[in-house]
Amino acid sequence: MQKMYSRPSPSGQVNKNMVPKDQTVTFLLNYSKALRVFDYQNITFETLLN
């Protein structure tokens, strides 16, 4: 039998239907809701209210 010294690149194995976990998406949405950015006299303030 012929011996194979190579194997398919991992890129061929990537499942195109992969999605992030729901908790990651939820975290991002909560982060977005908590973040407030406002300007006051040429200064930008950021607040993160949890």
Partner: peptide, 27 residues
């Protein structure tokens, strides 16, 4: 996020090959 998460996550995973790292980079 719902519209594009699959494409972006798959793209990241295709580079890092690690679900946890892909999750972090996505976030």
């Amino acid at each position: 996020i719902t519209r594009h998460k699959q494409r972006i996550y798959s793209f990241i995973y295709s580079k890092v090959f690690d679900r946890d790292v892909a999750e972090d980079v996505f976030q």
